[in-house]
Each structure stands twice: as C-alpha cells, then as structure tokens.
Amino acid sequence: MSEVAQDFSPFLRLYKDGHIERLMGVDIVPPVDPNSNVMSRDVVYSPALDLSCRLYLPKNTDPNQKLPLLVYFHGGGFLIETAFSSTYHNYLNTLVAEANVIGVSVDYRRAPEHPLPAAYDDSWTALKWVASHVNGDGPEEWLNSHADFSKVFFNGDSAGANISHQMAMRHGQEKLVGVNVAGIVLAHPYFWGKDPIGNEPRESSQRAFAEGLWRLACPTSNGCDDLLLNPLVDPNLAGLECSKVLVAVAEKDLLRDRGWHYYEKLRENGWSGEVEIMEAKGESHVFHLLSPPGENARLMLKKITSFLNQDKA
C-alpha cells in the first residue's frame, strides 16, 4: 500500500500515489424514506458538471401552498461529506418536517480534487438554478408550486455555514432576481484567522493543523486572513444581503469564538440587519448532527424552526 503523504485524521488521508481516503461521510442513502414525514428526491442542477441537489417537501402539503424555501449547504471542511449521506439526509428530513419548509440540499465538488472556489461556484450555480423557478416555470415542479421566493433562507453547518455567508455576500453583489433572502442560519461556522482570539489555542501545532486543512481546501489562498475564511477582514461586509442572521455556537467547539466574533462585529461593520446568537453549553462541533436526540440538539432545532417562521403570515 502507498505511504501516507498527509494525515488529516479523523477527516481524510492523502497518499503519496495521489489517492485520497475519506474517513467520514462516505455513505450514501437513497432519497426515499417511508418512515419520514417528508418526501424527497434528487434533481440535477448542473448537467455540465453532473451535480445534483436533494429536494425535500413535507407530506400532505396542499397543492397550491407556498412554503419558506431553505437552501442547505453541508459541512465537512470543503473536503468530506455530501448532501446524500445519512447524516445530512436524516437532519434535513427532521428540519423540513419540523419547520414546514421546502428544502434544497446542495451537493458541490469537494477539495482537494476540486479546490476552492469550486464549492462556492457550484453553490452559486445551484442558487441560480433555484432562482430559475421564480416565475413558476422552472424545471422542478416542487419549486414552481411550493417555494415562496419572498422567504428564502440559506443554512449550513461548519463549511456549509461559511458557504451560506459567502452566498449572501455574492447575492448582494450579483443579485438573484426575484429572490428575497430573508435570513441565513450559520451553525458552528467555519471561520478562522491568522491571529488567535478569545480562548483559541495559541499552540503552533494546533493552529498548523487548522491552517493545513484550509490550505488543502484552498491552495491558492493567501492564508488564514483570506476573506473567504475570515469574513471580518472583508471591506464589503456591510453588503451581506439578508435581513437577519442566526449564529449557533457550541461551548467546546474550536470555532466557538469565531462565531461569537462574527456576531459581535457584524453590525459594527455597517450591516443593518438583525443578528442573534445561541450557544449550546457542554457541546462540541456539529453535535446536533452527531447526537440529534439530545436536549441541546432539540433546543437548537426549535430555535432554527422559530427563526425560519418568524415572519410567516
């Protein structure tokens, strides 16, 4: 067997012969789940790149009923996981049923085979595909019939939260015509920076691991103060195109202080929307995906559900 060139356990290993061994998120489950209160199916959004998204619709939805539209971007450091793994399929089933929204879970190309900005570009392509349904004449009937484009939300965890932020920034610059992004939900967002803040580790070995993961995902990056990784260095932050933001952090998460820093600094940078934060005590990174029956995960689901439905008529 080839020797390991770089070991980023528990996420992935790179071997000297060039092959990549992903250690998490490699399972794929079908969209049909008879035990769920949600219908789902996979739809190609980029034929050129053969990329799909998984759509979710609550069962027994009235044929003419419009629902808030949730576009979800999965986490995994831009390196692992897919929209079709059991982790994300189970979570989207639960969230869509609880919040009574229509969901689009986006799959995107992953690094290192497809380094950033591939994931951002694919996510934007998916959003343009979603926006093609604004007038009710798009290729996917569920979106034509049920998506309320005045109430669109971006949501993601970890790297997916990073993508959600970047998509709201890009929407501010390029505009998805007919789409109103009412809010974004950033769960344990994958933000970082060159200089430690708060209780972040000062040890070079720990920070080197974090920086190594980022450089694997984005080898052309100028470092950890790249505005793709550290949004607070972005001079255009006030252009975040949404009305409200919910940031969720976990007490024992390495990324906790970055989430708090984003929450505290967003309005100071000229953004005029509403931002709120919730912290789960005693929990670690993406605990809500790994232990969904837990009390803190239930409270987080309830909070996100409320956030998605605050303005529902």
Rank of each mutant, 00 (worst) to 15 (best):
Q6T: 09
D7F: 02
S9D: 04
P10I: 02
P10D: 09
R13L: 08
L14F: 10
Y15P: 08
Y15N: 08
D17E: 03
D17A: 03
G18N: 00
H19N: 11
R22W: 06
M24D: 14
D27T: 00
D27N: 11
P31M: 04
P31R: 02
N37H: 12
V38Q: 03
S40A: 12
V44C: 14
S46M: 08
A48E: 15
L49K: 15
S52M: 12
C53R: 06
Y56A: 09
L57I: 00
K59H: 10
N60S: 11
D62I: 07
N64V: 14
N64W: 11
V71C: 12
Y72I: 05
F73Q: 00
G77Y: 09
L79Q: 04
L79C: 01
E81Y: 15
H89E: 11
L92T: 06
N93L: 11
N93F: 01
T94S: 14
T94Y: 05
V96E: 07
E98N: 15
E98I: 10
A99P: 05
N100Q: 04
V101N: 06
V101Q: 03
S105H: 11
S105L: 00
R109C: 07
R110Q: 13
P112F: 13
E113F: 04
E113W: 08
P117C: 08
D121R: 13
S123N: 07
A126M: 02
L127M: 15
K128G: 03
N135K: 15
G136D: 11
E140A: 13
S150V: 03
K151Y: 00
N155T: 11
G160R: 07
A161W: 04
A161G: 13
N162W: 01
S164L: 04
H165W: 14
Q166N: 08
Q166G: 05
R170Q: 10
K175C: 03
L176T: 06
L176H: 08
V177I: 14
A182T: 13
G183L: 05
A187T: 05
A187P: 06
A187D: 11
Y190E: 12
F191Q: 01
D195I: 15
N199L: 12
N199K: 14
Q206K: 15
R207E: 06
R207I: 07
L213H: 00
A217N: 00
C218S: 14
S221P: 06
N222S: 15
C224E: 14
D226F: 09
P235F: 02
A238C: 08
G239M: 13
L240S: 02
C242Y: 02
K244L: 07
V245W: 02
A250P: 11
A250M: 10
A250Y: 07
K252M: 13
L255P: 11
L255A: 10
G259D: 07
K265G: 02
E268M: 12
W271I: 09
S272E: 10
M278G: 03
E279Q: 14
A280N: 02
K281F: 08
V286W: 00
L290A: 12
P293Y: 01
E295P: 01
N296D: 14
A297Y: 12
M300P: 05
M300W: 14
K302C: 10
K303G: 06
T305F: 04
N309T: 13
D311Q: 12
K312E: 02
A313E: 12
